[in-house]
C-alpha cells in the first residue's frame, strides 16, 4: 500500500476545488472547521461559508433552507454530533423533503481515540441509514474521499458521508473510479468474501493478503456506499464464494453487517460472520489500541473468515 493520507484533508481540499468552479456550493460548520477542514473553503470563500457555532440543529435547518433556494450546502461537524445532536432536523427539514444537503462528518468511529466514548460515533450509520432516500457513504481512503465528495456535489438529494480523524493507508490508486451504489472489487477470491467499508477496508486487505499466504483465497469488496447498498455484488459474492464476513468501525447492529444480512436473508441465505463493535460504547485510548481492544483487527478478520468457511459445510 502506497503511504497514508488524511481523508478529512482530502475533503477540505476537494470542497475548496469544487467551490472554485461551482458558485452554488456553500459550506456550514458548527465550530469545528479546523478539524473538519471546511476551513480551506471558509478562507477562500468567506461569503459562502456559514459558521453556525455550536448549534448543530440550527445548522441542519439553515442548510435545508439554503438547499431549498438552489444552493448545494456541505454541512460538517463530527460524526457523533450529526446525526447525534440533530437527528430530527435531518429527518424533517432535510430527508423528508429530499433536500440537496450534503452532511459530511469527520471523526467517525473508535479511531477518534483519546477523546473517549462520548466522541466515538459507533451508531451514526444506523441512524442515517434509517432515513428513506438518504444516501450514505463511508470512503475507505483519501483518494476515494475526493471522488465521493465530487459525486455528492453532482448528485441531487441528501447525502451523509462519514470520514475518519486518522490518516490512513491508501487502498486505491489514482486510477480508481468511485461509482455511487457500486461495491469495488479489490481482491478476487473463491473461498469467502470480506465486505468492508471505511478504514476497515485496508485492514480487510491486510487480512486477505495474509490468508492468501496460507492458501486461503478471499474476495474483498469495498462497500463504500452503505445506502443504497450494492445488493447485486453481495448476492454474486454469496453465490460464488458461499461465505461472507462484514467488517466495520461501527456497532454490529444497524451498520454494514445488518445491511448485508438483510440482502442475503431475502436472496441467498449464506453463512456470515460480523466484525464490528459489540453492544458497548468506546473509551479513551490510542486509536490502534482501541481497534485492538474492540476487535477490529486483521487478526479478528482472519479468525472470522476461517470460522465462516468452516460453517459452509454445515
Amino acid at each position: 500500500m502506497a503511504g497514508k493520507a488524511s481523508l478529512r484533508e482530502a475533503y477540505g481540499k476537494t470542497l475548496l476545488e469544487l467551490g472554485k468552479t461551482n458558485p452554488d456550493i456553500v459550506a456550514l460548520d458548527a465550530d469545528l472547521s479546523k478539524s473538519t477542514m471546511t476551513l480551506f473553503f471558509a478562507k477562500e470563500f468567506p461569503e459562502r461559508f456559514f459558521e453556525c457555532g455550536i448549534s448543530e440543529q440550527n445548522m441542519m435547518g439553515v442548510a435545508a433552507g439554503l438547499a431549498c433556494c438552489g444552493k448545494i450546502p456541505f454541512a460538517s461537524t463530527f460524526a457523533v454530533f450529526a446525526p447525534g445532536r440533530c437527528f430530527d432536523q435531518i429527518r424533517v427539514s432535510i430527508a423528508q423533503s429530499h433536500h440537496n444537503v450534503k452532511i459530511v462528518t469527520t471523526h467517525g468511529g473508535l479511531t477518534v481515540g483519546e477523546d473517549g466514548g462520548s466522541h466515538q460515533a459507533i451508531e451514526d450509520l444506523s441512524l442515517v441509514t434509517s432515513m428513506p432516500g438518504m444516501t450514505v457513504i463511508v470512503p475507505a481512503d483519501a483518494i476515494e474521499t475526493a471522488q465521493v465528495i465530487k459525486t455528492a456535489a453532482a448528485t441531487k438529494g441528501p447525502f451523509y458521508i462519514r470520514l475518519s480523524r486518522m490518516e490512513w493507508p491508501l487502498v486505491n490508486d489514482e486510477s480508481y473510479k468511485f461509482q455511487l451504489g457500486k461495491a469495488a472489487l479489490l481482491r478476487q477470491g473463491k473461498q469467502a468474501t470480506i465486505i468492508a467499508m471505511g478504514l476497515m477496508v485496508a485492514t480487510a486487505l491486510e487480512a486477505a493478503d495474509k490468508m492468501k499466504l496460507d492458501g486461503i483465497d478471499c474476495r474483498v469488496l469495498n462497500m463504500a456506499t452503505l445506502k443504497p447498498i450494492d445488493a447485486q455484488a453481495i448476492v454474486q459474492a454469496a453465490r460464488e464464494t458461499g461465505a461472507i464476513v462484514t467488517v466495520e468501525e461501527h456497532l454490529e447492529h444497524g451498520g454494514l453487517g445488518s445491511a448485508v444480512a438483510e440482502v442475503l436473508a431475502k436472496t441467498v441465505p449464506t453463512p456470515m460472520q460480523f466484525v464490528g463493535v459489540k453492544d458497548v460504547y468506546g473509551q479513551s485510548g490510542k486509536p490502534l489500541e482501541l481497534l485492538e481492544k474492540y476487535g477490529l483487527t486483521a487478526k479478528e478478520i482472519e479468525q472470522a473468515t476461517r470460522r465462516v468457511i468452516t460453517r459452509k459445510s454445515l
Binding site: V26, E47, R48, F50, Q57, N58, M59, M60, G61, V62, A63, A64, G65, L66, A67, C68, C69, G70, K71, P73, D88, Q89, V92, S93
Partner: peptide
C-alpha cells in the same frame, strides 16, 4: 422549532444571490 433555521437558510441564499 425547525422553521426559523430554515428561514435563515433562505435569507442567506437571497443575500448570496
Amino acid at each position: 422549532g425547525q422553521g426559523l433555521s430554515f428561514g435563515i437558510g433562505c435569507a442567506l441564499a437571497a443575500r448570496l444571490d
